[in-house]
Amino acid sequence: MVVHEVLSESEAKKVSAEYNTPIDKFPKILQSDPQVIKIGAKPRQLIKIHREDPTGKYSAYRYVVESV
């Protein structure tokens, strides 16, 4: 199962600076997504995803939105 984790505002800013991208331009995740409900994230927060696939272990980020 893929681990999701809510980032605090300061952490989100750090990620945004690292990628040189405003946080609302990251890939999206819906508020109604089962994993978002599970960790209790709110819209306009950034979520860190611990991904593991054949290219290796890395973090991906998704921005919580209300609807598509």
Binding site: V2, H4, I29, P34, Q35, I49, D53
Partner: peptide
């Protein structure tokens, strides 16, 4: 997508294609 969310769906699509 409905049960495990978008991230699981992404992994599933990629793994199925592979």
């Amino acid at each position: 997508l409905k049960v495990y969310g978008i991230e699981a769906a992404r992994n599933m699509i990629a793994n199925e294609l592979k």
